[in-house]
Design a protein around this nucleic acid. Structure first.
Length: 648
RNA sequence: GCUGCUGUAGCUCAGAGGUAGAGCACUCCCUUGGUAAGGGAGAGGUCGAGAGUUCAAUUCUCUCCAGCAGCACCA
């Protein structure tokens, strides 16, 4: 038999018969490793212990001590064990797919009756039974015909479809957990006995379309989380509880920032505190944009359908637009309008007024543009996904050769702002050409490479979203994360070759001829609404002082101090600090607790001692210790903190 | 939009086929208290909306609306 050489992580190599399995390799090292092994990395690939190795390779044997591999296998095997448990309880449930995801896995089932929350407990119990039976996991490669026949006989149509979708020539691998069988890429554990019976939990059920396609049947997805041990599971559950406390919807209520109500789904009633955040951010953005060479405009909300037809929105976006028809009885003319879902067509109208010269480019046209989109009801989420919102939008009209420089300039602009707002790190996603698109391939080539090299030049890595670009051009997305790890696109930059064409934007070049500008659609915050949601969650409500709507509460300890309290408030207000008095007939403990819960960054306590010394006792949010300072010193310190970072 | 769940006082929630309860918040009174809840009293609800079943519905059924989780969507 042919020999192969396997190299271990310590650099030593040993000869084995070709076709040796990692399980045999592990056992040859020691009996205990043979038992403890869960999988191997062979030439960089994650290998099942049962797969044969046929060529010289590097090999590392994994045990449950290896976090990455162990967690992946635990979660993956639990997906199978869960499917097995479900079919053991309800034999006519059809199985589909069950991948590993963050913290756990899910598995999609086809079943008439919905799973109930009570069912989850029943399934969990069955899973523990299966785990404790400690049955071996085995695998075989089958040929296509046999696998299809098998699943047709078993009445598992989804599996048959899956096999049809696996490219010819790729191995079809079958796995058995005990006598329960599933089509699976692997790898898997040696036995279900390697699973921690006390470190997983089924969390929730939800619908999910088969193959992610809304035209296909909706399946029932059961989610689970799993860890290596009970302690990690518990830590995860605690983390989720903590994250729930940062939910902007909860904090928005507690901090009295905004509310929403049935009569205006997906729209926000901003309260004074919330609107303070909004205007503070808007003022800041306006200063930053002016400094970076933007001009600000403002355009109509209600626009005739003709413009939307010309721009292409009527065709491609109508479902998401609020259409406004004037009651015929009162209409002098029969016009159909739409609330603008985007600002771009209006900006082209501004651009088109008067002749533009190449000397006018790049023209950076900004608008705090109020948009309304009829978002699907299921997509609405607090103030992060709404039907009425305002973008910090701008369109940069430029020549093709300016794309790279403008992109780089924009990324630097965005990252400076994100830094000011406390987001040092953010993800960048790059989406390239989709299947159906407008524009020639060589133009796409140029645009894509310009975006990529500008991103790299600005010093950012990006994830590629192949084929996810807009039909009119490639795009960059700047993604921030909410309290429980959901991603939200905030900033964006999109190259657009199409709209200038459709709306006939032109400029006169140095050669005296008409040319077509390129439009860069870009936003930094994305929308104020979403960004404020993220800002609240990432700070757990403890906003930076300059953004905090209520910055200082001056609280009296005894009512004889009330006069000085008002003097302190007035002094702070004169220094540009948002201060208010709390002279209610309550104990200082009560006041401290209440204002701390509503996230006021600074509480200044004033008793008779302070009145005599003209001092205040300062307590910062989240800190227990206090500091006595003179009124003048506090006003000076807080005035600096209240100043937006760009004005310091 | 789809699947499932939820909707009772400002908030968090309990409750039952016979027209409702708690804690906190709110108002008033007492209390002037030194850094996360001082004491007492009071007020507050068309039980999401509509229809049906029933002697009787907030409770059961249906429809609608909204919210939550996930999926799809996010040009």
């Amino acid at each position: 038999m042919a020999q192969i050489s396997l190299t271990f992580p310590d650099g030593n190599a040993r000869e084995f018969d070709a076709g040796v399995t990692p399980a045999e390799v592990a056992s040859s090292i020691s009996k205990s490793l043979g038992k403890k092994a869960i999988s191997a990395t062979v030439n960089g690939a994650h290998f099942d212990l049962q797969w044969p190795i046929n060529e010289d390779a590097s090999i590392a044997i994994h045990t449950l001590q290896d976090d990455d591999q162990a967690l992946e296998l635990i979660r993956h095997d639990l997906a199978h064990v869960m499917a097995r448990a479900v079919q053991a309880i309800w034999p006519d449930v059809k199985v589909t797919i069950g991948p590993v995801r963050d913290y756990g896995w899910f598995y999609d089932f086809d079943r008439e009756e919905p799973f109930t929350p009570e069912d989850l407990g029943v399934i969990e119990a069955k899973m523990k039974e299966i785990i404790n039976a400690r049955e071996p996991v085995t695998t075989e490669v089958w040929d296509r015909a046999r696998a299809i026949k098998h699943y047709e006989d078993a009445n598992e149509p989804f599996k048959v479809e899956l096999i049809d979708r696996i490219p010819e020539g790729e191995d079809l691998r079958m796995y058995w957990h005990g006598d329960w069988q599933d089509l699976c890429r692997g790898p898997h554990l040696q036995t279900t006995g390697q699973l921690p019976a006390d470190a997983f939990k089924l969390t929730h059920v939800a619908g999910a379309y088969w193959l992610g396609d809304a035209t296909r049947p909706m399946l029932q997805r059961i989610y689970g989380v799993a860890f290596k041990n009970r302690k990690d599971l518990k830590a995860h559950m605690t983390m989720l509880e903590e994250a729930a406390k940062r939910d902007h919807r909860k904090l928005g209520r507690e901090m009295d920032l905004f509310h929403m109500q049935e009569e205006a789904p997906g729209q926000i009633f901003w309260h004074p505190n919330g609107w303070r955040i909004y205007t503070t951010l808007q003022d800041y953005m306006r200063r930053m944009q002016e400094r970076d060479g933007y001009v600000e405009v403002n355009t109509p909300q209600v626009v005739d359908r003709q413009l939307w037809e010309a721009s292409g929105h009527w065709d491609k976006y109508q479902e998401n637009m609020f259409i406004v028809e004037v009651d015929e009885e009162h209409a002098r003319e029969k016009a159909i309008n739409a609330l603008k879902p985007m600002n771009c067509p209006c900006h082209v109208q501004v651009f088109n007024q008067g002749l533009k010269s190449y000397r006018d480019l790049p023209l950076r046209m900004a608008e705090f543009g109020s948009c309304n989109r009829y978002e699907p009801s299921g997509a609405l989420h607090g103030i992060m996904r709404v039907r009425g919102f305002t973008q910090d939008d701008a369109h940069i009209f430029c020549a093709e050769q300016d794309i790279e420089a403008e992109t780089k300039k924009f990324i630097e602009f965005l990252s400076a702002i994100y830094k000011d707002l406390g987001f040092e790190k953010f993800a960048v996603k790059f989406s390239d050409r989709p299947e159906t698109r407008a524009g020639e391939d060589d133009v796409w080539d140029k645009a894509e490479s310009a975006l990529k090299s500008a991103t790299e030049a600005a010093g950012y890595d990006f994830d590629l979203n192949p084929g996810e670009g807009a039909f009119y051009g490639p795009k960059l997305e700047f993604v921030l994360t909410d309290a429980i790890g959901r991603d939200w696109q905030c900033g964006t930059l999109q190259v657009d070759f199409v709209l200038p064409e459709r709306l006939d934007a032109t400029y006169i070049g140095a050669d005296g001829d008409k040319h077509r500008p390129v439009m860069l659609h870009r936003a930094v915050l994305g929308s104020f609404e979403r960004f404020i949601g993220i800002l609240i969650e990432s700070n757990a409500g403890k906003l930076p002082f300059w953004i905090a709507p209520r910055q200082v509460v001056v609280a009296s300890i005894v009512s004889d101090a009330d006069d000085f309290v008002h003097e302190v408030v007035n002094t702070l207000r004169a220094a540009g600090v948002r201060a208010e008095a709390d002279t209610r007939n309550e104990k200082i403990n009560y006041k401290v607790r209440e204002h701390s819960l509503s996230k006021v960054p600074v509480i200044l306590a004033v008793g008779m001692k302070e009145v005599e010394d003209r001092t205040v006792t300062m307590r910062r949010l989240g800190q227990k210790q206090t500091a006595v300072e003179t009124l003048e010193a506090v006003a000076e310190t807080l005035a600096v903190e209240a100043t937006p970072p760009d004005l310091r």
